[in-house]
Structures are given as structure tokens and as C-alpha cells.
């Protein structure tokens, strides 16, 4: 393992998040078993108070996850000098099999936490808290995922060994060390462009429909298209958007665009993309509960609002990506 401050910070953050949720888990079980909204007993009052702790805790985990995600990518990028053949974060993440797995689970946990918070928000609008049991059940599902993400991260960092000079045998790691895939690769540009715009258009359309009508079916469609648009957007960034930003026909990297060399253009892309995806998925996560009487008015309003956010986010993302492509001096397609 590399003994590096950012790595220690990441492990600390994710370990602490797991620990906090694990300590809170027995209380969640108690909420599931003893909840009785009609009762005025002191136990019920105590359980209701506890719900505030859980929302705050999950919000904290969510924020920490977001920060950790960024730090993880930055650290991977910074560490690339340590490994022969690694040019940027992609190379570092490829040093062992856990790198990308850890990154993807982290993104997954981020979106799941966002969905939980959405459900939580909807639930706390209804006077009878109809989703309380379900919410805390989901929380118990989230815990092993969070622990798994921590475990992957730990395995990944444990498996990192820098190719450095040792006093006994000097150099030539370089010659012997197996070269790692320093570059990601993407789809060929043309199908990627088609997929990219098709998926984003579908997501924006679904979001607009749901924003207008807030129907149940359109909510599910919105969640599906949002997930699809996220994947297509990342594929697109890998396959062609990044190339245009780097003005280099072979540098497929989703991370370098976050660097100052490229004017932090990545943030402008990822921020609306992540917000829109989280909002779209959140709107979908609400739909199973649309028929609960106490949610009948507040839930469609909330999910329509999320759809609005998704529509705006995906549109900003598409426009910016197109702008970066058009403003570039690189020409991939004639």
C-alpha cells in the first residue's frame, strides 16, 4: 500500500461513513419493528426524533461520498507518476482490478444515497410518514453496499505498489514491470455520437413529459432514460467529447478534463450530468408510492420538480458538450 495522505483521507472518510451507518443500524431496526404513528407513547416520540438523526446522517454520508469521489479521481491522477505507463488517472485505476470497480461502486452509492434522500424528502411531506419502514429497510440495504465500496477501495489501495528504486537492485523495474493500460478506450466516434445524442434527447423528452404530467409511467421512463443517458454521456465523453477538449485524436480520458490545463471544463460537464441523473433517478424512485393517499398531492409535485431539474441538467450538459466539440480545433469526422 502507498502511504499517501490523500489515500489515508479517503480510507478514513469512507471507513467513518460505514462505521456511522453501522452504529445507527440497530436503531433503524428498532424503527422498523416498533413504529406506530398512531401512538402517543414516549417510545414512538423517541423514534420520531431518531428519524431526524438518520436524515442528517445520510445527508452527511451523501456529501462525504461526493467529496470522496472527487478526491479519489484527483488522487488517482496524482499517483500516475508512480506507475510505469500510467499517464493519468485511468492508468492508476488500472494498476489492479479493484480500481475501476471501486470508482463505479462509489458512483453507485452516490446515486443510491440521492434516491434515498429523495424518498425521505417525499415521506416527510406526508403527515403519516407512510414510507418509514421501507425507508429504513432501504437504509439497511445501503449499509452493505457502503461497506462493499469501502472494501473495494481498501483492496485497491492495498494493491498499489509504486515502481520505485530500491537500494539493492537499483532500477529496471521499468523494463520488467508489466505495462498497464494507461489509456481508456471508447467506442468509435460515429456510433458514440449517435448514441450520445439519442440517449440525451430521450432523457430530456421523458423529463419534459413527466414535468408536464407527472404520470407514473413517465416517471419510470424518466428514471430509465436518465440511467441510460448517464451511461451514454460517459461513453460519449470517453469516445469523442474528451478528444475534442484535448484536441488530441487518441487521448480518451474522462478525468483529465477536470484538470486546470483544460480550464476545468470537466466540472461544467459532470456537475449538470450528475445532478440531472440523480434527479431523474430520484423521480423514478418515487413512482411506486404515487398511489399512497397521503402522498397523492405532494409526490407528483416533487417528482415533476425533479423532472424539471433533470431536463435542465441534461440540456445544459448536451449544449456544453456540443459547444466544446464545435469550439475545438480538432476534426474527427469529415
Amino acid at each position: 500500500m502507498l502511504f499517501q495522505p490523500a489515500i489515508i483521507a479517503l480510507l478514513l472518510a469512507s471507513g467513518l461513513a460505514v462505521l456511522m451507518l453501522a452504529v445507527a443500524a440497530p436503531f433503524a431496526v428498532q424503527v422498523i419493528r416498533r413504529w406506530d404513528i398512531a401512538s402517543g407513547s414516549e417510545l414512538q416520540l423517541a423514534l420520531e426524533r431518531r428519524t431526524y438523526l438518520f436524515s442528517t446522517l445520510l445527508g452527511f454520508v451523501f456529501a462525504a461520498q461526493l467529496g470522496a469521489l472527487l478526491l479519489f479521481v484527483f488522487t488517482a491522477d496524482r499517483l500516475s507518476v508512480m506507475f510505469v505507463g500510467a499517464m493519468c488517472a485511468v492508468g492508476t485505476l488500472n494498476v489492479n482490478g479493484y480500481g475501476f470497480a471501486a470508482l463505479l461502486t462509489q458512483i453507485g452509492v452516490f446515486f443510491l444515497a440521492a434516491m434515498w434522500l429523495t424518498i425521505n424528502h417525499a415521506d416527510s411531506q406526508a403527515r403519516d410518514y407512510p414510507l418509514v419502514r421501507l425507508k429504513y429497510g432501504l437504509l439497511l440495504v445501503l449499509l452493505p453496499l457502503l461497506a462493499g465500496s469501502f472494501w473495494l477501495e481498501l483492496q485497491y489501495f492495498r494493491g498499489l505498489k509504486a515502481n520505485v528504486i530500491t537500494s539493492c537492485c537499483g532500477s529496471l523495474f521499468s523494463g520488467e514491470a508489466k505495462t498497464i493500460a494507461g489509456e481508456a478506450s471508447g467506442l468509435p466516434a460515429q456510433p458514440a455520437i449517435l448514441l450520445f445524442y439519442a440517449a440525451l434527447t430521450a432523457a430530456v423528452a421523458a423529463a419534459l413529459v413527466h414535468w408536464r404530467h407527472a404520470g407514473r409511467a413517465s416517471g419510470y421512463v424518466l428514471a430509465a432514460t436518465s440511467g441510460g443517458a448517464f451511461v451514454a454521456a460517459i461513453t460519449g465523453i470517453l469516445s469523442f467529447v474528451s478528444l475534442y477538449i484535448y484536441e488530441h485524436p487518441h487521448h480518451h480520458c474522462p478525468f483529465c478534463i477536470l484538470k486546470p490545463e483544460y480550464d476545468y471544463q470537466g466540472y461544467a460537464l459532470y456537475l449538470p450530468l450528475f445532478v440531472a441523473t440523480a434527479a431523474g433517478l430520484g423521480a423514478g424512485a418515487l413512482q411506486p408510492f404515487a398511489r399512497i393517499p397521503s402522498l397523492a398531492t405532494s409526490l407528483p409535485r416533487l417528482s415533476a420538480r425533479l423532472a424539471g431539474v433533470a431536463a435542465v441538467g441534461f440540456s445544459i450538459f448536451s449544449v456544453l458538450a456540443s459547444y466544446f466539440v464545435l469550439a475545438s480545433r480538432l476534426r474527427l469526422l469529415e
Binding site: G40, L45, Y129
Partner: peptide, 22 residues
């Protein structure tokens, strides 16, 4: 505070079982 049992109605609406938030 909430009653341990019994009902409180405000303008006809039962508020005795409402969570603290409401």
C-alpha cells in the same frame, strides 16, 4: 406536545397523532 391518548381537534381536524414536524 402530543397526548398519550385521546384526541385533540383543531377546527375539526384531528391533530393528536401528528408527528412533531407538522
Amino acid at each position: 406536545a402530543r397526548p398519550t391518548s385521546g384526541r385533540v381537534r383543531l377546527r375539526g381536524e384531528d391533530i393528536s397523532g401528528l408527528p412533531e414536524r407538522f
